[in-house]
């Protein structure tokens, strides 16, 4: 293997409870499992909480639920889980965090970062952010959720550069593993 070590760091999500006890910059060999990182190096959950997922790869990445924590980390295994290595960042999320809220946080970032050149990314990120807001405010229906999925696939498939192609990933991956959290917020 060409690269046998990669950097990871755990850091708190802005405005959301800290998931693990130890955060900071760590360096682990490829093939380390997520559970080892979270429980041994991260020191497990803080505040008696229970960890439910980690988010990897930054705003264009996706989340990995607790039941897949025994996956050994490398580029292919993360891709199979619907996320990516990306920036190498890992955010540990505890049970108090709402995954829809987290998806909105990342979508807000992408909406602010889009350059505006291509149509799907310029207007799609704005619309996705608004639909997520609607869901969180408890005003959305099943039709909005369908729209959210359709638009996520559109933005991913048709955007010009990596920002737009990756922007819907937090939505698609939270929908994949935590759809119940979306459904519970619908009218």
């Amino acid at each position: 293997m060409g690269i046998n070590a990669s950097k990871y760091w755990t850091l708190p999500l802005k405005g959301i409870n800290l998931g693990v006890q130890n955060t900071g910059l760590i360096e682990v060999p490829m093939g380390t499992t997520i559970r080892q990182i979270v429980e041994q190096m991260g020191g497990g959950a803080s505040n008696q909480g229970k960890i439910k997922a980690v988010q990897t790869g930054g705003p264009s990445g996706g989340c990995i639920p607790e039941n897949a924590f025994d996956t050994a980390i490398d580029y292919d295994s993360l891709k199979a889980l619907g996320t990516m290595m990306g920036s190498g960042g890992m955010i540990v999320i505890d049970e108090e965090t709402n995954m829809v809220d987290m998806a909105r946080f990342y979508m807000e970032f992408c909406r602010d970062e889009t350059c505006g050149k291509c149509v799907p990314c310029r207007t799609g990120t704005v619309q996705l952010y608004q639909i997520l807001n609607k869901i969180i405010n408890g005003e959305a229906t099943q039709a909005d959720l369908t729209k959210l999925k359709q638009l996520s696939y559109l933005v991913k498939a048709t955007s010009l550069c990596g920002l737009g192609q990756g922007a819907p990933n937090p939505i698609l991956s939270t929908l994949r593993y935590f759809e119940d959290e979306y459904l519970s917020l619908l009218k």
Binding site: V119, Q127, L154
Partner: peptide, 13 residues
């Protein structure tokens, strides 16, 4: 379907 959605996005924008 993609084209239709893209035009819809333009009209909404």
């Amino acid at each position: 379907e993609n084209r239709k959605m893209l035009v819809e996005l333009l009209f909404a924008e």
